[in-house]
Design a protein around this nucleic acid. Sequence first.
DNA 1: GCCTACGATTCA
DNA 2: TGAATCGTAGGC
Length: 506
Amino acid sequence: MLFDSEMSDIDQTPAMHNSVVDGENAPLYCICRKPDINCFMIGCDNCNEWFHGHCIHVTEKMAKVKRSARMCGECEPCTRTEDCGQCDFCKDMKKFGGPNKIRQKCRLRQCVVRARKMLRVRDEEFSLCERKDNIIPALINKPHPSLVTVFCLFFKSWGSDDEDGPLCSPVPRKKAIKVKHVKRRNKKFDKKKESRRHKQKQKHRDRLRHSERGDGRHGGDMQQCLGPNCIESARPNSKYCSEDCGMKLAANRIYEILPQRIQQWQQSPCIAEEQGKKQLERIRREQQAARMRLAEMERRFHELEGIIAKAKQQVIQQDEDVNETDSEDTDLQIFCVSCSHPINPKVALRHMERCYAKYESQTSFGSIFPTRIEGATRLFCDVYNAQSKTYCKRLQVLCPEHSRDPKVAADEVCGCPLVRNVFEPTGEYCRVSKRKCNKHYCWEKLRRAEVDLERVRVWYKLDELFEQERNVRTAMTNRAGLLALMLHQTIQHDPLTTDLRSNKDR
DNA sequence: GCCTACGATTCA
DNA sequence: TGAATCGTAGGC
């Protein structure tokens, strides 16, 4: 296949021999017999004719699909460009945070024709599991799904033709094996011999591949379609003559098997179901407790705002200046935890708070999602950073990066509620000027942060409990799901198929 | 023969 | 130069 980008390599006008040249000497191409109009064109290897991409419905992207020993370039996985991010190969990739040990491309991108079977065998497993995850909830949401819905979902999940392959195989995978590559290096191979052997192997494989493809195309033995009442011959590499026949057979099987399986299920008691119910009860109790705690914290939130409002109404007591200066007049020095400079204990709180804010504001803590908690006010800062495309996730009251402490007016009073024995409120307020009070520096901010932090904790707890509830519910619903009922037993549909167990018995 | 790990190669 | 991925050694 040739693309227009490759035209420089074959300077002579392509397909000139069979193209008509019009009056202005512009060569005509394609089925439309029009000249090259500066669009994407693709050339045929066989006839050397050039075609406009849009005339033959081939896009530049499609044409660029790679072909190799492991890629046919035509099947769905070959044309797929995105990694699923879920399979073991994806999870191994560095871009998905993996160790890069397996180094294989995504299972969903392994060619169905040419990739090695081991690279795609689990693809079926994986995609089924993935599809199953999508199908079961779809069925759960319908209390009485119509048989057509059930059948379509089931059949699609089962795979169109291949019903012999172990789908979500319960067989555990083999353990990882460590390879001693050092040994390999130490071994002295006869290189000539090795490469000759390699070439022979390659030739053999190529021969096999060609013969396989040949077989696939022309079909070995002709088999009759397994579709109900169908007398046609099956398609190559399939048991059915058409998708329709496969669907009909699958529908028949569901009609035949499902009612019996449902009856069986209903007759047997389920311990896991009982445990699930107990777990749900526990989760609900914890949710209730968390909600009560949240209500309590909301009440404290409003209470604190009331205290702060009341504190602001206090009047400054002038003689406090003397008390402030005469106490603790010592040479004692402590070191700031942020900048490690020696500071006077009297101003330590003020200094350390500012120093911390200075360093803290140089870092960002962001998430790509804005906070969406219904009914919660003033929790996270949530300022959007266009550069990193993230929302700030510090507590709003404690975020030095996006909010500065308001400037204190000269006549503002400290107003911190005074306490006795650390916790008992005396009902009085500190009436020192806010600018001069070193004892209660930023008390509103710290008290607000205390309440907000607890509120955040309770929200996290609630979120965790919702997640637990969802998991338990999903597990309970899936237990008697359609796929589970249909798949968790072995049925010998075809009496001619060799049943290994019966062989053993004999 | 399956599977993992990793050197080698290709490509952007 | 690094990411992607191919091909294969070697354990089981």
